[in-house]
Amino acid sequence: MCAAVDDATREFDAFFEAHFAELSRLAHLLTGDSTGADDLAADALLALWRRWDRMRAAEYPVAYARGVVANMARSRIRSAVRERRRITLFWSSQSEVTDGPDVPAVIDVQEALSRLPFRKRACVVLRHAFDLSERDTALALGISVGTVKSQTSKGMAELQRQLTPLPGVERVQAAAPGGRTA
């Protein structure tokens, strides 16, 4: 029995060493949080360690690990959104509401990704940043290959729309007082 535990520990250590960096990058791309990505990957690996006896027998343990990271990232994003809403409600009742957010002139890819719904973001990141096949992406997210295809296509189209400057935007932003364009 002791030899089996040692084998399991060695297998997990090897799995950890081989996949921690990849899982951390995935967490970073899904959440946009570089400081919390390592923690999220470590939490996912801890969850895997608790079920390592089943995991080590799985056909695609890396796909399962990616799915755990994706699910944990989704939970963290939802928690962060709920927290932001609570903070916004608190401050809006305490102070005057402004005209609106200051929209940056240039949207970078990470900001554009953060605007995508989670499933589209996950499909785009796994397919294009991690170069996974449609099948591997479907396994990681627990969805069908057809869903991966459609979500990736829609996500890429949304990113292209977000990152392509609209004609005439400069003129609208440079409008003279009174609403006339410069």
Rank of each mutant, 00 (worst) to 15 (best):
L46E: 08
I77N: 07
F90V: 14
S150A: 12
L26K: 00
D13H: 06
S114G: 07
P104Y: 08
K120C: 10
D102C: 12
D6S: 01
G179S: 07
A140K: 04
Q94E: 10
G178F: 03
S153P: 02
R180H: 01
V97G: 13
E22M: 10
V109G: 05
A129P: 01
V5M: 00
G155I: 08
S92C: 13
M72V: 06
V125T: 04
R56V: 05
V69Q: 01
T152C: 14
S133E: 05
Q151H: 12
R115H: 09
T35H: 10
A63G: 07
D99M: 15
L139D: 07
Q160H: 14
R84C: 09
A157K: 15
H28D: 00
L141S: 07
T35D: 07
V69C: 05
A4S: 01
S150D: 13
T152Y: 05
V62C: 04
R161G: 13
R86N: 13
A42W: 02
E22R: 07
I87W: 08
K154P: 05
V68D: 00
V68A: 03
A58V: 02
R82G: 14
A122I: 00
Q162D: 10
V106C: 09
P177L: 08
V106E: 13
Q110M: 08
D39M: 05
E111M: 11
R161S: 14
E170F: 11
R54T: 05
I107E: 11
I87N: 12
D43H: 09
D108L: 08
R82E: 15
A63W: 00
R135P: 03
A129E: 04
L166E: 13
G178I: 04
E59C: 04
E59A: 09
V97C: 13
E59G: 03
D53L: 04
G168L: 09
S92P: 10
A80Q: 11
A157H: 15
R76K: 13
P177G: 05
K120Q: 14
